[in-house]
Design a protein around this nucleic acid. Sequence first.
DNA 1: CGGGATCCCCCGCGATACTG
DNA 2: CAGTATCGCGGGGGATCCCG
Lengths: 139, 139
Amino acid sequence: MTEDGTLLGVAHTGVPPQVDRDDCGLREVLDRVGDRWSVLVLSLLEDGPRRYSDLRRAIDEISQRMLTLTLRGLQRDGLVTRTVTPSTPPSVHYALTGPGRTLSTEVGALLHWARQHRDYIEEHRMRYDGALATHRGPG
Amino acid sequence: MTEDGTLLGVAHTGVPPQVDRDDCGLREVLDRVGDRWSVLVLSLLEDGPRRYSDLRRAIDEISQRMLTLTLRGLQRDGLVTRTVTPSTPPSVHYALTGPGRTLSTEVGALLHWARQHRDYIEEHRMRYDGALATHRGPG
DNA sequence: CGGGATCCCCCGCGATACTG
DNA sequence: CAGTATCGCGGGGGATCCCG
């Protein structure tokens, strides 16, 4: 971010910033990162290539359907590569591409923020919910 | 991120990293940031406080229901403040808190990444889809 | 003006079963 | 081992109406 402090890159021209022109790619990235599993897979791949079943065991709450879908999506966007070793039984491993790696770095920063503000958010939620209960009465 | 390059903060102890212990706050932040409107609102507030109807016009594809829900969520987490000016008609404005500002900065970095890799992703998708069509035949 | 309540639809996701 | 195909649900989110 620059000194103008405008997240969406809209210069201070006097008009209130609109969202039309800033949509460029934002939603797509957030959809990618915002789904249930992508960042988890991305982060697991930071240590190096991993096999399909390896990822499956590492996450283990994930269904094989969602793991496949997630990997396909990441592969489609060029964030991971899929490499098949034709053997019996066949072996497939996935690895981050360059962009995949830089993305997971960005996401890592977000995770860092999450850690730092976890308690703050937690406490704020409790206070907010508590205040609500007060306003509306306990019953 | 430190030099170990592990997004989830799992040290290289020789065991494959699991996701159980790293869930700390990650999902919550991603749920917050991953929904359809939060980051947009966050980013619009970077320029300073805004009134409800002002935000509504700025986004304009958003329903008032979702704007309200989004603002409530951000407020609940202590990321924005809600200030009522009792007048006729009443006026309500929203502003970022400190944590809200740092979060939107992080999100801004993600947006920057999105801009830089937009074309890459776009092209990669087209190639991926094109290759799929080739494998399965034109229909 | 700034919302709350309600209805409804879509689809992300999980569970399960089958294949090369 | 590494997927694919099908079914079904839960809830996120839009549309609409109403209120102080």
